[in-house]
Computed example of a mutant assay.
Amino acid sequence: MFPKKVYYGLRFVLALAILPEGKLRGVAEIAENEDLPLKFLEAIAVTLRKKGVVDVKRGAGGGYFLAKPLNEITLYDLMIVLDDKMEKPIEKEGNNANKAAGIFLQEVRDDYDQLLMKYTLDKLKVHYTEENDHIMYYI
């Protein structure tokens, strides 16, 4: 249902979200740590930067960081940026059956968009923290 680009984008944002305050991380380091394809992640990072989700500090000691808090970034924000299908217009021209189908699909898309807007990415970090709490180390 969700394209890999969105899945990888979430992992990229999460990798930045778990950094200590003021720390930055490069795309290559995140790609290696998360076992993600570097070129693909670089393209995602550039797209997210252009849309204001993340920002970058260039030069020595530089890297990416979140441009705003997780509770201000919704799943819709990532989807609209990373999923090309989200902005494709729904056809509502032609015969009555085609118009009816288009109107119906537009209603569904509008509801889907509203649902995605309800989910802020701070919940992503909560799930990550909960998963880390389940890890047990044995000696």
Rank of each mutant, 00 (worst) to 15 (best):
K4A: 12
G52F: 08
G63E: 04
Q114G: 15
L36C: 01
D84W: 09
K5D: 07
A45I: 07
E87M: 13
I103A: 15
R58D: 07
P89G: 09
K50D: 15
P89N: 11
I135F: 05
F12P: 11
D133A: 08
K51S: 15
H134L: 12
F65C: 09
H134W: 05
A45L: 09
F104T: 02
A45Q: 06
L48H: 02
M79N: 13
I135R: 01
T120I: 00
A60E: 11
Y119K: 09
I103C: 02
D84E: 15
E131C: 00
D84N: 03
E87V: 11
T47Q: 06
K92H: 12
Y64M: 10
A100M: 07
L70C: 00
P89F: 11
L121W: 00
V54D: 06
A43H: 02
P20D: 12
E87H: 12
V46S: 01
V56S: 06
E87T: 15
F65Q: 08
P20N: 03
M136H: 11
L66R: 10
L75M: 12
G52T: 09
D111T: 14
L48W: 04
K123E: 03
K57I: 13
A45F: 04
R58T: 06
P20E: 10
K68M: 07
I18F: 01
T129Q: 04
P37W: 05
V108S: 07
E93N: 11
L115Y: 13
E91D: 14
E21R: 14
K118D: 06
N132T: 00
K4C: 00
A28I: 09
P20Q: 08
K99Q: 08
K23F: 13
L14V: 08
V108A: 15
A97E: 13
N132Q: 12
M79P: 00
P69Y: 02
D83W: 11
K118M: 11
G22S: 09
D111Q: 15
K118S: 12
K123S: 02
I80H: 06
A60Y: 05
L10T: 00
L82H: 10
K99V: 11
P3W: 06
G62R: 10
G26V: 01
K99S: 00
I103K: 14
N98I: 08
K23Y: 14
Y119R: 12
L14T: 08
N132L: 14
V53N: 07
A17H: 00
R25T: 10
K88I: 08
P20T: 02
A97L: 09
D110Y: 12
M1D: 14
R25V: 05
N96E: 14
F40D: 10
Y8E: 14
K50W: 05
F104M: 14
I103H: 14
G59T: 04
A31D: 12
I80W: 09
F2K: 13
K39F: 06
M136C: 03
K57P: 00
I103G: 01
G102M: 07
L124E: 04
F40C: 02
L24S: 02
T74W: 03
A17Y: 06
M136R: 13
K51L: 10
A17N: 01
T47Y: 02
I80K: 13
L78D: 05
M136D: 06
L70W: 02
Y137I: 07
E32Q: 15
A31L: 10
E130M: 08
D35R: 15
L10Q: 09
E107N: 15
Y7W: 05
M1K: 15
L116D: 08
I18G: 07
